[in-house]
Design a binder for these strands. Structure first.
Ligand code: SF4
Ligand code: SF4
Lengths: 136, 136
DNA sequence: TTTAAATACTACTAAAAGGTAGAATTAAAA
DNA sequence: TTTTAATTCTACCTTTTAGTAGTATTTAAA
């Protein structure tokens, strides 16, 4: 019941850049301030660049910057990119074939939190991380 | 954002047995009705036996049965057993060092669904699966 | 024009989760 | 007492996720 590491890292990276949106950030800086292994970070950065969250500048004095305004990148966008989302139809037990007449003891209780989580991911953008300055 | 397969299977197995609590169930039957690979199922059954959810009878005419009343086994118990729980302190981004004065855009929104999920797992017992007869 | 400092690419290794194979053990039925 | 049908044990294989290594490419500064 958790996000995968790549998603977590990606959100932290993007949030940090959103919070310091004027400069260009290079991999060394990001790796050190966010405490993410350098090689793993560059791999994620390349994925974020390819999937158009980030614009990268190569060569000396290069680095990374956001590709669009902070309020146009939702957490859901990021999670989708790393196949780490919760669908409305998702069944906790991985069955999903039951209907109203025969459901397990979790079915109804799962509806509400699932909706809240979905809404949370859809309605939160990088803009909501601005000024937050949460640790690491 | 999902349970691991072993947990899911374990819950399905225990629920099924709870629903048919008079008989002894053997691995072949469980594997076939619940559509869980036989060898994987027996592995899980042995774990469930060792962790005292299940009492097994070995030898010919052997099988499995619940070790205690259906209302004394919560879903949380099962998840704990397979290291698949959500703790109240758990942070979505795996940081968890932030406090009230500096929190990210998800922190407050995560509180409510997390509580609901925890409550759901703690308050649901195998008894709540009785008579449900959900598919597979 | 060379060098330094950055990203990108290719390919691999490590750990965890998911799953399988085969033999050993147990105990009732034949 | 032998056979059969069940669980258990040990050891392995496969897939996915996480992470690392080394080299190639790019570009601006020196
Ligand atoms: S009833 Fe339970 S098992 Fe069936 S789809 Fe709903 S949550 Fe899943
Ligand atoms: S503020 Fe965000 S990152 Fe920090 S502990 Fe809360 S949820 Fe986790």
């Amino acid at each position: 019941m958790r996000l995968n590491n790549t998603s977590k890292y990606a959100i932290r990276i993007l949030s940090y850049i959103a919070n310091n949106n004027q400069q260009l950030h290079n991999a060394k800086e990001l790796s050190e301030t966010l405490d993410i292994p350098y090689k793993f970070l560059t791999k994620i950065m390349t994925e974020l660049t390819k999937s158009n969250f980030i614009i990268s500048t190569r060569g000396r004095e290069g680095g990374y910057t956001l590709s669009r305004p902070t309020d146009e990148i939702t957490i859901m966008d990021v999670l989708q990119n790393f196949n780490d989302i919760i669908y409305q139809k998702d069944c906790l037990l991985g069955i999903g074939k039951c209907d109203g007449s025969n459901k397990c003891g979790l079915h109804d209780q799962w509806v509400k939190p699932k909706k809240l989580i979905k809404k949370m991911f859809e309605n939160t953008t990088l803009n909501d991380f601005k000024g937050s300055n949460f640790k690491i």
